[in-house]
Amino acid sequence: MSPFRRADDLAQRQDVAGADFGATEGGLFSPEEVRRLMRIEFERAQRYKYPLACFLISVDRLERLQDLYGIETKETILRAISELLRAETRASDLLGTLLDDRLLVMIPHAPRSGADALAKRLLDGARKLRFESDGRSVRITLSMGGSHNQTHKPTQKLFYETLLSVAESGLDVAVQGGGDRYVHTELYDWFQRKAERELPRGASTPSPAPGALFGADQSSPLHQAYVEGMRIFAAHGERAHPAPAPLPASLSSEQEGEYRRQIDNLERRIEKLNHMLAKTEEDLARMAHMRSLDPGVASIYREVQGLSPEDEARALKKELMLKIFEANMELKQAVSQQPPAS
């Protein structure tokens, strides 16, 4: 069996041919190093308010290819991808690996449109890569999740974790959708709230009541989501749908995991719908502006005012108003005799 190898011209590039994938020197940064550098870059981008895009990339069916073509397959493919990344990105962009063979790319000073174009180039580039083993041609595709630091609402402080989580959620969607695609989920608010919830709570946080659902931990996100759901049902007097049955006092870890997944999915869906709604509202406002449907700003007066009776100079001002009016009446008559303006 001949070894799994690159079958295209790009394989001969010298600058990365000998790169030791996963090491700092000559190759990509190690997972620890890349996390540290990227966090620094992210903080800098937030401080100086410049755009920064983040990609999380995985090779579709990589494990399966490794099973089929041997242990060296993974390294050959990942090296080819890193080579592609280096060719398509700038020297100042940060490339690195994460555990489980995913690649993380951080591109400073890249607007959203530029990031989308780069993602498209990377997908195209991966499709053009050729490998062969035993005379058989092998092609690969990528799944990519993206995020951008200037896409979320500027009023909120964006966390580094949120940026990664959004990219990760995009990658999940891309993989589940069959791969060979780039997805930007825009679930910033949802992950932001999640990140805030997961921050260490202060001493003022009320302690959970004994005998609560999900064991004794009433403050768990799962319990809070359930309580919130019940509150919404009660607030809307929902009669068409039956109220959810109370959850058992204790749940197995499997059941709890299932509930968590469902809540996560529902929250994501809500977030996505909210995002779409906000976008539609923006579009409507823009269209209204374009069609001059701006309602304008209301005056503080409901009726014609005139001089105030308390004005000390009322008599003088009254006389001045009369003179201005007379001058304008004269002007009106004079103007009416003029030919229309061209």
């Binding site: 700003v297 005056s299 014609v304």
Partner: peptide
């Protein structure tokens, strides 16, 4: 019939300005 808006306009060679009774 919803109100009265007064406008004061200064038509200038360099700049033209407006002040309205709606605060604009």
């Amino acid at each position: 019939d919803k109100g009265v808006l007064y406008l004061g306009i200064d038509l200038g060679t360099s700049r033209t300005s407006v002040c309205g009774s709606n605060g604009v």
